[in-house]
Every structure is written in structure tokens, then in C-alpha cells.
Design a protein around this nucleic acid. Structure first.
Lengths: 235, 235
DNA sequence: TGCTGCATTATCAAATTGTTACCAACAGAT
DNA sequence: ATCTGTTGGTAACAATTTGATAATGCAGCA
């Protein structure tokens, strides 16, 4: 779909690609370079660990079946070392090798990707993995839609430059809806995600909060889908 | 078009847990909540179907042996309904109940887990299943036919770029017919899938809804097959 | 002609939301 | 401690949509 590549990764990540088949490492490396990542390659577990120390990757793509030292063993050793305790690792597995998948996740992989590798899928997973591991040192997490901006770290909403003050619940509700523009959130999903699973609130509570948000922002960004839920949408 | 920044937050998955023993649903629910999933529970097949419609889970954990309506029957009915055709379903079976396992996979389960349930294994399987089912990205679920697009995530229908607003039943009905273009759906079948097995409505109800859809869309995408039913067809 | 089956339209009750007013619990300032 | 403003929720009622039905028309056909 939409390629939002350009303006997303401010500082490109460093990725170490480990596979015993040079064709594969080449292919992946070529692809990732094209997307702005820095890459390094290794052809077995031993080399992987050596290069990892040197290259300090943000993420490692690790084949499971390799000579010399397989992926499972490699990840175990990596996870022992403090500097790689927190590094994202994605396994590359042959299709239908479910045993390895489970094994891999158990020993600390963050994800796995089945071969043959589809570049787009790979890119998506990598983005997800990197993001998961960088939450803290990123700058403000914010959502913007044209004139509207929702700053999740500052807890503020501005529309056309003016700051709009929302109460906590209102802010959370708006943030949820805006996190997936266009997507319809069912009422009970909203309840669970904003109020929590065990809190029980009345039927009209959501409506009232929605109303307050609409009122404060001025324009109607939230659309009602009767019998279903609400969705956020810029017009 | 709004300039949407990158903010594809990964929302935690929704899981429906179905078992006739509250101890078990409680235990699983507690565990999964701890891992960030949203959960709902049901104690038999009938309740499961009802709650599923409301909760729209991404994954269903379904016990096989239950009173009122067993797991096999439940999954069969769920798989009939368009909104659950693509939902991940994992069976819970008693150890050594191999017959049920096979039966379960036949009728459309994606995996099964033997009791007693080990939380870690459960978590792994769930991750795998959810990932397998997440349409390759985090893309909207939609059907498109040339100028017509039905977006199930956004709950919208657009024709030649214009958004057409359909009510819930209308939307569900159109989605069903459009899910298999060209195929004729018997009136009976439509009733079961859109209205459910227990609801009883009059004879003319379907026609009226069909009419409203035709009217709203403008062109006639739905063909009447006299004495049989209706089918969706782009001209 | 009389039947069968679908299309159309109008109508109405039920379901769902919107809106307002009000209140208890808190938080902050004085 | 008291006063004051805010928050988050509820209750009650208004407004709107919806989904179903009944009534009627119409076309095709034995």
C-alpha cells in the first residue's frame, strides 16, 4: 500500500544478516540498503557473534539452520551477553518448520519470518521490531492529521495551532480512535481498551465522552457507526 | 488526503475463550491479560457465537467438549459466517483425544492445544496463530471489484470514490453476497448467516434490505435468481 | 384466471445515540 | 480546613436510525 518509507526512519537502523547461503544474505542486504538501512552479513553463528560485537546491530536476522553453529545456539549465546540482551532478533526459518519457530521464540527471538522471503513483509517486520525496541529514546510520540496534532508524550492536542485541553479519559479515547484512522472501534472494544477489562461503566458513558471531545475540538472528527462503534476520520 | 504520520501502533489482539469450566476460562483469561491481550469468555457454543459477534475476536480458543453446543458444531457455524471465515481458531482438547483433533482440523481449526494447558506454550501458539492470520501487514480487510470497494475494517462502501452509507444489516448482507461474487446464496442461507440461527424474521425482510442496498448504490449489483436466492455480480 | 414469488412503499416499534443536567470524588489553592 | 474547579460517571429524556412488517403492485406462467 502507501509507501511511507521516506519520512519515517530518521536514523536508519543497523542490521546484521546471518545465513549460510550468500545468495540470501546478498538479496536481503541489497533490499535493506535500498530502504536506507546499514547492513552487515555473516555466514554462520561464529562469524555472526564476532561481527555483532564489532558492528553493534540494532537488529539481527538469523537463519536457524547453519553449519558451524546453528541459530538457536547462536541466539542463546548472544542473549547471554549484556550488549545483546536487548537487541531485536528475527529468525529466518524454512516454511513449515514449526518446531524451530517455537524453539526460536522460546530462546528469545522476537519474531520469525518464513522463507522464501518477501521483501515487503520483511520490511514491515523489521520496522515493527525496531520500533518495539526503541520506544524510550525516541522523541515525542505524536499523531498528526493535517491541522490536528495529538502528542502522546506531552498529553496535548492542538488544532490549527490552538491547544485544546482534554481530560485524561477524553485524551485516551481520542488517542485510541486516532491510532487507527478510519478503523471502526466497537463499543466494547473501546471500553476494554480505555477503561480496562474489569471496570464496569454504564451504557452512555462512551457517548458522553465522545460528545465532550467533539465539543472541545469543534469539528467532528469522530464518526458514529450505528450498531457498531465509532471511528476517527479527518474529513 | 490527510498526511498521516507513521504511527502504526500494534494494538493487542482480542481473544475469546470458550470452555464450560469457569476455572479454565479464568485461568487462561488471567494469563492472557497479563500478556496484554484483551479477553472475553463464554461457557458454551451458543454463548460463544453470541459473544463473538459482539466482541469480534482475532482469535478464539475453543474447547471441544461442551454442553449445549460442542466445539465442532460451533466452529462449523462460525466458519459459515463471513465475519469469522478468517478468524484464527485454536481447539482445546483433552490429552489423547486424537479423534477430536483430527475432526477439529478438518472443520477449520488452525491449531489445537492439549490440556492441561501450559501458559508458555499457549502464548507461543497464540502468537504464531495471530501472526499467521494477520493479513501480511496490518492491512484493512476489504473486498474490491473495480469501482466498488467494501472495507470491512472501516465499515464503508465506496463506489466510484463516493462513500455510500449502509446500515449494519445492509452492510452485512452486501458483504456476504460480495464475499463470493457470482455465487447464488439461498434465502435460507442468507438468513442463517446474516441473521443467525435463532432469529426468526418474516419472508419479505431480505427483499427489503436488498432493495435498500440497490437503491443506495445506484447500479444493480445484486441479481435475483427467482425461486432460489440472490447473487452479487459486477456487470 | 389464479398462483407464485419478488419489488416497492409506507409505517411503526424497538434499538441506539445524542444531549443535558446533576452528583460524588478529587485536586489545588487559599 | 474550606473553598473551588475539574473530572468522570449516571440518569433521564430527546432525537434519530434501524429493521421488520403489512399492504399492494406486478410479472411470469400453468
Amino acid at each position: 500500500m502507501a509507501d511511507i518509507e521516506e519520512h519515517m526512519e530518521v536514523l536508519p537502523g543497523k542490521i546484521l544478516i546471518v545465513d549460510d547461503e550468500p545468495d540470501i544474505t546478498e538479496f536481503i542486504s541489497y533490499n535493506l540498503k535500498g530502504k536506507g538501512y546499514l547492513t552487515a552479513t555473516a555466514r554462520d553463528g561464529v562469524e555472526a557473534i564476532r561481527k555483532a560485537k564489532d558492528f553493534r546491530p540494532d537488529l539481527i536476522l538469523l537463519d536457524i539452520m547453519m553449519p558451524n553453529k546453528d541459530g538457536i545456539q547462536t541466539i542463546k549465546e548472544l542473549r547471554q551477553m549484556p550488549e545483546f540482551e536487548e537487541t531485536a532478533i528475527i529468525f529466518l526459518t524454512a516454511l513449515s518448520d514449526e518446531k524451530s519457530e517455537i524453539e526460536g521464540l522460546k530462546v528469545g527471538a522476537d519474531d520469525y519470518i518464513a522463507k522464501p522471503i518477501k521483501p515487503e513483509l520483511l520490511a514491515t517486520r523489521i520496522r515493527t521490531a525496531l520500533r518495539r525496541f526503541r520506544k524510550d529514546d525516541e522523541q515525542d510520540q505524536k499523531l498528526s492529521f493535517g491541522e490536528l496534532e495529538i502528542n502522546k508524550t506531552k498529553f496535548t492536542v492542538t488544532y490549527k495551532g490552538n491547544e485544546i485541553i482534554l481530560a485524561k479519559k477524553e485524551f485516551e479515547l481520542l488517542s485510541l480512535l486516532a491510532s487507527k484512522p478510519g478503523r471502526v472501534f466497537l463499543r466494547n472494544e473501546i471500553l476494554q481498551r480505555v477503561w480496562g477489562t474489569d471496570v464496569i461503566v454504564g451504557d452512555r458513558t462512551i457517548d458522553v465522552h465522545i460528545r465532550k471531545i467533539r465539543q472541545k475540538i469543534g469539528i467532528d472528527l469522530i464518526t458514529t457507526v450505528k450498531g457498531v462503534g465509532y471511528k476517527f476520520e479527518m474529513v
